[in-house]
Design a protein around this nucleic acid. Structure first.
Lengths: 203, 203, 203, 203
DNA sequence: TATGAATGAGTCTTCATTCAT
DNA sequence: TATGAATGAAGACTCATTCAT
């Protein structure tokens, strides 16, 4: 299993994140929102007829659920892989987790945008699952910051707040970063590690 | 006129931010999104019939524009008032501006939520105006951080990135903070000033 | 009474045909049709508020009825005046009636346009009255042409058809004639008398 | 190709002029006018649901345009076929063209009624096309009458006016002629040829 | 699988009309 | 009289979804 774990590179975004149909749906949702998107538009963008689309997904809601779950699963898988690579040192764990968050939100900003703005459009059970996944994700960073504070490596007096601030800072990347700007996602990640270390009071 | 200027307290959120009809519309938009909200629902929540609503606002879009413009105007007015109170010291200016951002996004989180998630639902001219207002707002913080870096008061090597990180951190408050939690907006602001100072490398 | 009769000049179109409010309504109806016109538009064009309009006329339908009745009454009054002036000679009667029809439909083309295209928008009783008035009007010409045929002055073998053809020819003027063209209504009337004489087989 | 040309009989009105949906729309427009007709009514009369109708025509306007264009195209095709049959003699050309006009406006009076009363309801581009078609149609008769006058076969001093009078006379048939009356369209056409010959001063 | 055709429910918006002031 | 505000009913049109072929 070490093998299979090693083969998953959390810094690699060359693989397509979504099957074409979900990709088409995501693009539409990003552009016009879930309720502002007609299923006909999604079908057209994916090169399918409307009943052809329904052959693959049973409802419009299912498309949104598919996107949201995939986004959270990918983020979580990369985050745990980053932590695994980091080993035990708390500063390393913090740095690689921030790096991972920035990379994901720069490379996959559409996923994050949907996850942030269309949770309300998920029906009740899917929304519950999504929130659980989000909390689980938040806990990864909370634990690192809390340990850093406990060990005296991070100077922050309020590790929980600092952790949340770091999270919103990194997820916020999805709101403004677009590929083609002056900085690559990797360069941006380097700078954000620095900034986030400051936010938690790392030396 | 100095008098009237003095009377505007940027820390005071006791005045209602919106007329009742826009308030009703904003609540609906927050809950279901712009496209997910029926004008009938807005009218009902405002205690009006549908044509009664149209007597006051000519379209659903006008409601959204009204909310977005009011949100940006209020934020900008408070921000400039905070800077005016801060005087010339760059650390004071930074601190008060962050305090202002946090207070606004904690007290008026719905406005910020709409402004962040429904820009795409604004029609072209309104969207252009909104983006201009957002850039103008961002520049207030950019200038402060840039000056702090130039003076050597902030240690950050990348003031522009740090400034943007601080902004997203503060606007991100609107995504998770809700009144009734353990911290008051004012207490949260104190902690965020600390965190943000760290992010820009203030001592 | 001869006096009052003499004072009414059926060739005089300098007097306004309608009070301002009906005039405004007629302009709207001509432009967009009865159902295509909003009462608010009529009120605005007449310089009144909506309830102000309702103070003068109890309904939109009443405006249409007012226009239609006025149009038919004016046409009939002018037609009988023309016949009275013509005296007993059947060719004179024919000529002056055609002249009258052309003048009315050239000067008051809007009235005729409404009368022709919006009868269907009249409610049942008003429509019945309108049709009666139209038949009464048609009979004026029918009688003249029939007499001319009986006397052998008009060569037509089918006086009823010829009469109807002459009527539609003259009322058709309202569909294409507009003031400001190369011919004055009076000049046009001269030519139409010639043409219509040919149609009924006058020498 | 001569064959296919011969096979088009401009005197034959047994073929349905419009597909069922346009037919239903035309009936409604004739009865209540364009703005007075609800799309629901059209759909109901055609035996369709409202979205079913929209599956075939993209808008209410498209129905009107379809009717108007079909009417003008049919009239023009029949008119040119009539002229082709008439050959070179100007009196024959006049007679057959008048016959054609009367037949069309007696058999297809609804089309003509719509074309005359709802031009204003066409949107700008469709209206322009309609007016161009109408002018082209008018020119067919203008040319015949002008040539007759030039050759001295028609005595009229004002061929243009006479031509227009003849046109309105024939199109006017659509306003009053209804099948089931005492005269068949063909009988009426015979009489109108006579009347119209008189109008242009033919012997 | 894929699609043209269909639909019940719902969208935003406008209408003629009324009434308190 | 005049008006700002209000409304029930209806307008054109679109939606997510289904089904026969």
């Amino acid at each position: 299993m070490t093998a299979s774990r090693t083969q998953f590179d959390w810094r690699d975004f060359s693989v397509p994140a979504l099957p074409p149909l979900l990709r088409a749906a995501m693009d539409c949702f990003v552009e016009h929102g879930y309720h502002g998107t007609a299923i006909r538009t999604v079908a057209g963008r994916a090169g399918l007829s409307v009943p052809g689309l329904y052959h693959h997904y049973p409802s419009k809601q299912a498309l949104l659920v598919g996107i949201a779950e995939s986004a959270m699963a990918d983020l979580h898988a990369r985050s745990t892989a980053a932590l695994a690579e980091a080993g035990d040192d708390v500063e390393d764990r913090f740095a690689l987790l921030v790096e991972c968050l920035v990379l994901v939100h720069a490379y996959r900003w559409e996923h994050a945008f949907i996850a942030a703005s269309e949770i309300r459009s998920l029906d009740a059970p899917a929304r519950a699952g999504h929130i659980a996944a989000r909390d689980r994700q938040q806990k990864l960073l909370d634990d690192v910051v809390a340990e850093g504070a406990r060990l005296g490596r991070f100077g922050t007096a309020h590790p929980k707040d600092a952790s949340r601030a770091v999270t919103t800072m990194c997820t916020g990347v999805a709101q403004w970063y677009r590929t083609g700007g002056p900085l690559s996602p990797e360069e941006l990640a380097v700078r954000y590690v620095q900034i986030c270390r400051g936010a938690v009071g790392a030396p």
